[in-house]
Design a protein around this nucleic acid. Sequence first.
RNA 1: GCCCGGGUGGUGGAAUGGUAGACACGAGGGACUUAAAAUCCCUUGGUCCGCAAGGGCCGUGCGGGUUCAAGUCCCGCCCCGGGCACCA
Length: 978
Amino acid sequence: MYRPASIRFSTQSRQKHRPLRRRLAKFAAIQGQMAYDHKKIEAEWQHRWKEQKTFRTETGGTRPKYYVLDMFPYPSGAGLHVGHPLGYIASDIVARYKRHCGFNVLHPMGYDSFGLPAEQYAIQTGQHPAKTTEENAARYRAQLDRIGFSFDWDREVRTSDPAFYKWTQWIFLQLFNSWYDPRADKARPVSELVARFESQGCHGQDASVLTGDVEEFIGEFSAAEWNSFDERTKQMVLQRFRLAYLSEAWVNWCPALGTVLANDEVKDGVSERGGHPVERKRMPQWSLRITAYAQRLLDGLDGLDWSESIKEAQRNWIGRSEGASVRFPIGDDFIEVFTTRPDTLFGVSFLTLAPEHVLVPKFTAPERKAEVEAYVSTAKNRSERERQAEVDKVSGVFTGSYAKHPFTGADIPVWVGDYVLGGYGTGAVMAVPGGDQRDWRFAKHFGLPIIAVTEGADVEKEADERKDATICSEGFLKGLKVPQAIRRAIEELEKIGAGTGKVNFRLRDAAFGRQRYWGEPIPIFYKDDIPYPLPESALPLVLPEVDKFLPTESGEPPLARAKNWTYEGHPLETTTMPGWAGSSWYFLRYMDPKNAERFASKEAIEHWGQVDLYVGGSEHATGHLLYFRFWTKFLHDLGLVPFDEPAKKLVNQGMIQGISMMAKVQASTKDGEEHYLVVPPNSTAEGTFERNYLVDHVVLRDGKHWIDEAGAGKTRDVAAFRGFHLSAPSIELKPVVEKMSKSKFNVVNPDDIIEKYGADTLRLYEMFLGPLEQSKPWDTNGIEGTFRFLKKFWNLFHVGAGQEPSVPSTHRVDPTAALSEEAPSSDELKILHATLKKVTEDIPKMSFNTCVSQFMIAVNELHALKCNKRAVLEPLTIALAPFAPHIAEELWHRMGHAESISTAPWPQWEQRHLEESSFTYPISFNGKMRLQLEFPLTLDAKAMEAAVLANPEVQQRLEGKTPKKVVVVPKRIVNIVV
RNA sequence: GCCCGGGUGGUGGAAUGGUAGACACGAGGGACUUAAAAUCCCUUGGUCCGCAAGGGCCGUGCGGGUUCAAGUCCCGCCCCGGGCACCA
């Protein structure tokens, strides 16, 4: 299977430099067959794994299952950089390790292939997003293949594939056809709700699940009334219960772009792209009632083996707070507020409504109408982000109306202020300036009364928000501690019917419609403007062809351009699902990816169960991971999956950052054109700013980074530098660690690394870089170490023992793999078993950097012992296989095995090889280590203390003094206190 | 402001309360070589004393504390990264 050297070097002939080739050829001739040729080995094994479907997984069998999942990537046009595979390498190590341990491992990969960039590209070029997606996925696949992952590609899924999104649409229909029953605390079919309405009507008991910022309970009705409702009314009532429902939601509408923008696409009230004005507008929107699951999403976190920071982020996002809802009567109506501090009710000096509160117009006194309307319209058009950013600017307006205090009956002025958010709670607050700093600022600004609510508060200076204070405001709560006062206040509110205890969540329902083309069509049609679900038989509802990927002239989504976008003559929904739809359930599809009858068979779901290990970036902390859990809980409620959390263990890999080369430039205008002058990096002159430089052509001189002429010349093509003036023959650059990104010119492509060092080296190096969870900058320089390690490991098999280690190993010619069948020495066994122990213990901890360093120690030591014994190297090769699979597979083969190394059982470490008869004790004086003494482990503490004190060097250090105390910790340390 | 991480040599990092700096990069020195590459060996936290062997002192962001013993535990700060935020 090995080609002669001369032919082998034909692979090198692509290299341009002939002299180099000649030199390499000579080198290869010396090395014969024994050199570590990563290119050949990796290409060969990747080919064989593919041919023989080594990593194909069958559902079922008697082996225990293990499901290792990576967050699948969006296939962007930029391809992979070295940061992307970090998590995949880690999960691949675990997958391979678990296979060695006898598990049936599911380790799939696919693409989250619906998304904005492909659509944006389509708008600009007319290229169909399906085509770009296809090309990008092919490129990703080629890059991933070169790293040697053990994915079962037969199970690949793509969210944009109709065979996949058929089931995304199917799940949407289940959501549409379900409501949340608060008594059973789970989702149930809407048909059951209808049956109940038909027999008992509705008496408000289900109202607690109604959510959304415009949702209001429709009111009570009897069975007879329900039966007399017309179809439209019935459907409208049911809308309020469905888990997928059509409502109106505030969106960032950009008329110039004719599209809805995400919050982060809006900067300072204008679109980030193009700078067009953006207005907040109410539009019909499909939403998912995730809020019905708020409590379960919160409770479920406790049992998960996820990082504390992610769990905490989800808890904050869900934002549960306990308090009371209080009604303040006003005229024939009332204003409902939510408060966590009903104990401060006697400190209320005004109410504040959010500008978008529906009752603002009603409660505005005629003489104040103009002023209030003006305020509302400006406040409303400020983005939420803006309103939240400017904490110092207090603004508001008095409505001219007064509400009644529920306990005292006092007149409470009603104000409008944009510090109150429309989307949280009821969109209204009872303002207690003595107990809430925001209310206090508002009161100070407008000269409203500030009542002290707690003892010891200095309300002239600030509000007192302590939760262990004693209430001092006049009324029945006076003298009570805050917690008791809260309970008492709620009791009293409930007694007089002015309020109730209430739990409020920050979590809002999830907007589920996008005015976009490249997403799953929502399987809904409209009859008389009432939304109806498509029958299952009509799925998949395939994305139609359109002439342009832009919204229509009248502002409808791109799907409105499609011809015959109807179902049985009725218009179909024209918005599409958001990016997170497919990723909310894709883990189930991997279990049974080809199933045409069901999203995945019952057997497959039962066999594979929850994801045992989920690896991905922490940027999905509150988005994807929340929806992922929500959909799983929903499918569980319908009895479709037996578990209600998707992933038991979650690990977030850190970001691999790039080192950017920053230059300081100064803009100037010459002949009406912008010019850039490169200035010293510490310059603070006006008009200076920083720009990234190409990392190529950077030279280190005098401890500083410089770019040479060639590099500077190349950079001239970058728009920002066009026509700049060089202030020196070369430019000084400042290295900065930041996110790896094409636009920062700091991307490192794994293909280049693999070309030079091989996939095994890349894999080892990415793991060696540091703890998986930590973010760290990529520095290709360090890679030599892992490359050398692999060569050294390889050489253990190929240079016989008995030769002088000082002879460079590449110069020793030994054409056959020289493995000794001799029994290993106890030293050799100790190295082997110490390594097996460390690796076996550290893989489950996901501590891969320490595994790699242990391998290095083992190889260094075995090298020093000139060990080439099969009994040592064979188990070591298996242990290394998850990390560096190609070289391990190759050596395994050379050792005479026909089966893939991935089928080899994991070698067990044995304590007996690690036992020591003695221990070298550090002897410290007052905690400072001074000398070392070796003692047999059988020696007891007392005898050891005597032996230590008898030692001449210890005696000398004691200078005749008697130690106060001697601490002897067996197998650890001896400490002499003087 | 709140929540979660983190701060250790020139660099990435290691260390169940028990010898701080494993392992690796880089740097310096040496071997091999016509030469280079590759490989191998040695040194490498700072500082001071010594011709040397060797030894002293300082040292894990800062200040306290607990302990025979603290990078590790406790209290109070500072800084960096990430997330959330007029959340009532």
